[in-house]
Computed example of a mutant assay.
Amino acid sequence: MNRFFASAALRAFTSLILLSSPLDANAQTFVNGGAGKEPGALKAGVYFVWLSENDSQGLLFSNNFSHYLSKKLSVGLDVGLLSAKRYDDAKKIFTVQNTFYMASLGAAFDALQGEKVTLRLGAGPSVRHRAEVNSDPEGQGTQDGSVTHIKTSDTGFFGYLENDFGAFRNGIAGGRISYFHYSDGTPVLSIGVHMGFKF
């Protein structure tokens, strides 16, 4: 029985490889058109963030994997860690501290596609797990003296404007502006730079 399932899985995998492989040069050009001969990209970025409801600032460290489905349409996965704080000069303490673990799936369209420069617009669903220490939580979380600890998860969406510049043979460098909005908790505005490579 195990041999039967292993054989069936091998046949299914082989069929998937054959079906996903381009049949001719024109198909290869179409599938990989958005990135020349390299339809996939892996990028790491660092972004300055502003959390409007908490009026706190910090950094978002993010990794992105994307893959072109057609000449201008791509899909991607972002995972990141955000850390932000707000310091009260009068009280001489941090009144808000935010730690977010974030993940997003996005679809993007290349509005401008050049040999060395690409400008794209993207959007998609997003989730996060947030751990906050907040002195003004509006009835959320667990009270601990003068501050409240909040641990919860939120769902939402994000949108972004991004550009990529070709660097060296398969390198990428560029920037991104993103906006994240969730069902609860503060929205996030981020702007920063990334680097990576195409493959």
Results as ranks from 00 to 15, higher is better:
Val193Trp: 07
Ser70Lys: 01
Arg169Pro: 00
Ile177Asn: 11
Thr186Phe: 08
Gly34Val: 00
Thr186Ala: 11
Gln97Asp: 08
Thr29His: 05
Ala103Asn: 05
Phe61Ala: 11
His194Ile: 01
Gln143Asp: 07
Lys198Ile: 00
Gly174Val: 06
Val133Asn: 13
Leu105Ala: 15
Leu60Cys: 02
Ala44His: 05
Leu19Val: 03
Ser7Tyr: 11
Arg130Leu: 13
Gly166Leu: 14
Asp144Lys: 14
His149Trp: 12
Phe48Trp: 07
Thr14Met: 07
Val147Arg: 13
Arg128Phe: 01
Val79Pro: 00
Gly122Asn: 12
Gln97Val: 02
Phe4Tyr: 09
Asn98Phe: 04
Asp184Gly: 10
Val117Pro: 05
Ser20Ile: 11
Ile191Cys: 12
Val188Thr: 05
Ser56Cys: 04
Lys151Asn: 11
Gly185Trp: 13
Leu42Cys: 02
Ser15Arg: 10
Tyr101Cys: 01
Asp136Glu: 15
Pro137Ile: 09
Ala90Cys: 04
Ala173Phe: 09
Asn64Tyr: 08
Val127Ser: 05
Ser66Tyr: 03
Phe165Arg: 15
Ser70Phe: 00
Pro125Gly: 15
Gly58Asn: 02
Ala27Gln: 11
Lys43Asn: 09
Gln28Tyr: 06
Arg3Cys: 07
Ser104Ala: 12
Ser135Arg: 09
Gly141Cys: 09
Ser20Gly: 12
Ser178Phe: 09
Gln140Ala: 15
Thr99Phe: 12
Arg176Thr: 09
Val133Gln: 14
Leu42Met: 06
Thr148Asp: 14
Gly192Ile: 08
Ala8Tyr: 07
Ile172Met: 04
Ala27Asn: 04
Leu82Gln: 06
Asp154Asn: 12
Arg11Ile: 02
Tyr179Phe: 15
Leu189Phe: 14
Gly40Tyr: 02
Tyr68Asn: 03
Ala12Ile: 03
Phe109Ser: 00
Phe30Gly: 00
Gly175Asp: 00
Lys71Gln: 01
Glu115Tyr: 06
Phe13Asp: 08
Gly166Ala: 13
Gly141Tyr: 09
Thr95Leu: 03
Thr148Ile: 06
Val49Leu: 07
Asn163Gly: 15
Val79Cys: 01
Tyr179Arg: 13
Phe48Arg: 07
Asn63Phe: 14
Gly141Pro: 07
